[in-house]
Design a protein around this nucleic acid. Structure first.
Lengths: 209, 209
DNA sequence: GAACATACTAAGCGGTTGCTTAGCCCTAAG
DNA sequence: CTTAGGGCTAAGCAACCGCTTAGTATGTTC
């Protein structure tokens, strides 16, 4: 049973994202770090902030993670994998349905899990070159997933796009940017944002009259 | 005469944005700061980085600016004003033309001046509450400018949108996110991005067949 | 040429950073 | 009861942070 209180609801969503991380203390540190990184940014967050949010001493961080950057990498990697999974799990009878579900789910994910999404989308440059490369490969697969759905719709004649890669870029960009402007207390729920965006994207790709 | 070399071309664009700032040294510091803030982020940039990029000693910063945050505020304020001006200067015979020009120019600005645009879009939370409020007012005017154009098109029947504020949000979001993914060496020029996006947005808002 | 103003630098201050060290507490096997 | 080991903390280290102070070089005014 989840509560409806703002702060606790936020915490529940973070718990949901990181539920597979063990042991318990390592998970609490990841949750604290993703909260802090999303709120203040990676560089503005101190290891003392993270430890304090997790209710521990500053030194406790280094029992479970080698460095502050390793904490960022875990969040970024798992976050990318989750957002990719959201896309690969999408179903539908035809490209129109599949794309509508993909956009709806992907945009909704960036709203609902905007904390994780912000770290995923805006802290790439703080990763070490090796970790950055690993994450870029996941991003390539996310882009390919969306491009393939649009391409399938072009082949059936359901979509009409002048520039496949350009359209893919725009669709992804639209969904990703939700993480920037979304606010939990706002007038649109994550579900409503997903519906709105699925509709707008289908309008954008439909053939002319 | 501008050079075609990457690094110098970038510097020319920054010069163009800040050409009204005087004295000379204050402008050089602003250019250095916007370069560094865009590349590494505000919090990851030190005042020594900025001074060094401007070819001066760390103390020189404080002759022209009260603090590092004041440097950020100047960049953010002027940047917001410039991007608002891009929208207000747009012309056209009908809402369709005006919106196409607005989207084309606004998206193009976020590509061409992606350095400034990144500071404008991603460092809001590093401003003091007073400076933040001042900049939020400019953002409100930017949103209103786009919303009014779309509304005008809905009234003439040129556009068909199920949700005016939702459509405005999506159009703005699309253009703003250009600053995140644009890379100077990429295969699309700022002009091409502007054209692509104007086309996609008009497709999104056109009435059904 | 004396007096002043402006633009800058060298040096450094107090505080904070990521991270380490040394040791304590608790559990559990021998 | 002893001993070993993992999880944690108190204390602190070296480096770095934003910013200040004291002083120097240069040009201008009378």
């Amino acid at each position: 049973m989840t509560t409806t209180s703002g702060g606790l609801r936020e915490f529940d969503l973070l718990e949901q994202t990181w539920r597979h991380v063990t042991p318990d203390t390592a998970r609490r540190l990841l949750i604290a770090a993703s909260q802090a990184f999303a709120d203040r940014g990676y560089h503005a967050t101190t290891t003392r902030d993270i430890a304090s949010l997790a209710g521990m001493s500053p030194a406790a961080v280094y029992i479970h993670y080698r460095s502050k950057e390793e904490l960022l990498f875990q969040i970024s990697k798992i976050g990318h994998e989750l957002s990719l999974a959201v896309l690969t799990e999408v179903q539908g009878d035809d490209p129109t349905q599949v794309l509508a579900n993909a956009v709806s789910s992907f945009a909704r994910w960036h709203a609902e899990f905007h904390n994780t999404a912000r770290v995923v989308q805006y802290e790439l440059s703080a990763l070490t070159p090796e970790h950055h490369a690993e994450v870029v490969e996941l991003r390539r697969r996310i882009e390919a997933e969306v491009r393939n759905v649009i391409e399938a719709g072009v082949e059936t004649g359901e979509f009409d796009v002048p520039d496949l890669r350009g359209a893919t870029l725009a669709v992804l960009s639209l969904c990703i940017d939700v993480a920037r402007w979304y606010q939990p207390g706002g007038k649109r729920s994550p579900e409503q944002i997903g519906d709105l965006y699925a509709d707008l994207v289908l309008r954008m790709l439909r053939p002319a009259a």
